[in-house]
């Protein structure tokens, strides 16, 4: 079995071309993120191609929990689809990144397992012969154009709005698979925020989860207390809004803050932005950068103006 992309996995060999893996949540509930990624990434030197052949990555908690081998084989099928294009994969979702990168690593290191998976895939018309690298879009951006390059590309810097960055569970952990930033004190995405003109606000609870897995498990009060813990910490440290790189965290902070407020668990919610939205605003996009219906927390001042697509 050969792994041509493993031997030659410098993403620059594909002239910054990637295959986009948008993920279920962005595709189904927040399609504006997909729309923005398609338009925005090429302006940053990242050409994206798409395929309609991908399925759910699959979900690293429930599908993987239900049946590890089937989950691995479905992930392997997605890798095979990508491998057929010869392109590295860029994702919009940290969890998809982890599922696919972890499957790739497992299959690269265990040829017996790869044969077993390929036996399954062969009966369904696929073969995994080259395992492409898989990266979340913020890692791709950090590597090229990088913070300095991005600063030069920005057309409308965010003029010092105070933003805190929330790191999703699977953005940096496990580090030996994702190979990006320190999961306990991540800084790189803050450097990107700084590059687009924001004033980054550090806070204590940086490594805490948004609480989304608790709400998925039906533990709403526990989930809302996790939301309140982070948001109150960010606000106390001076943030006017928070930014995420994960659609699931985005959904959790939007809906969670509304519900936490109703239950009296949170006094003052913060507007939430997906990184792609603030990036689009900094690149000169107006109100089309924002899906108004997805933003339940409107905020005030500069953050409220940003939500209307106004940077100045």
């Amino acid at each position: 079995m050969s792994f041509p992309m493993e031997r030659n996995n410098d993403r620059h060999t594909a002239q910054h071309r990637y295959l986009l893996f948008p993920g279920c949540l962005a595709s189904i509930r927040f399609p504006r993120l997909v729309y923005l990624a398609r338009r925005l990434f090429p302006e940053l030197g990242i050409e994206v191609t798409e395929t309609e052949s991908f399925s759910c990555c699959p979900d690293p908690v429930r599908l993987r929990g239900a049946d590890r081998f089937t989950s691995l084989a479905i992930a392997a099928r997605n890798l095979a689809v990508a491998g057929e294009t010869g392109l590295p994969v860029i994702t919009l979702c940290p969890s998809c990144t982890l599922t696919l990168a972890e499957a790739g690593r497992e299959l690269k290191s265990d040829h017996g397992l790869l044969r077993k998976v390929n036996d399954v895939l062969a009966g369904c018309g696929r073969e995994l012969s080259g395992i492409p690298p898989v990266s979340h879009f913020l890692k791709v951006l950090y590597e090229s154009p990088g913070p300095a390059g991005l600063r030069d590309m920005v057309r409308r810097p965010l003029k010092g709005i105070a933003l805190s960055y929330h790191s999703g569970c699977h953005e940096n952990s496990p580090p030996d698979i994702l190979r990006f930033d320190n999961p306990f004190n991540p800084r790189k995405n803050e450097e990107l925020l700084d590059a687009i003109g924001a004033r980054v606000v550090d806070y204590k609870e940086k490594s805490a989860c948004c609480g989304s897995p608790l709400s998925l498990d039906g533990r709403m009060d526990d989930s809302l207390s996790a939301v309140a813990l982070k948001v109150e910490d960010m606000r106390r440290c001076g943030a006017e809004a928070l930014v995420v790189g994960c659609a699931s965290c985005f959904q959790q902070f939007e809906i969670g803050q509304v519900m936490a407020r109703r239950k009296g668990l949170l006094d003052a919610p913060l507007p939430v932005f997906h990184f792609i939205e603030v990036l689009a605003l900094a690149m000169g996009y107006g109100s089309e950068a924002i899906d108004v219906s997805a933003h339940k927390v409107k905020g005030a001042g500069t953050a409220a103006r940003l939500l209307r697509g106004e940077v100045s």
Binding site: Y35, F54, V120, R126
Partner: peptide, 23 residues
């Protein structure tokens, strides 16, 4: 947004996989 409807063309293959693994 000018995006096509969500595509479910992978369903046949992932059901095939789930069938072959016994899932």
């Amino acid at each position: 947004l000018g995006l096509s409807a969500p595509d479910s063309s992978a369903v046949g293959e992932i059901r095939c996989i789930a069938s072959r693994t016994g899932f």
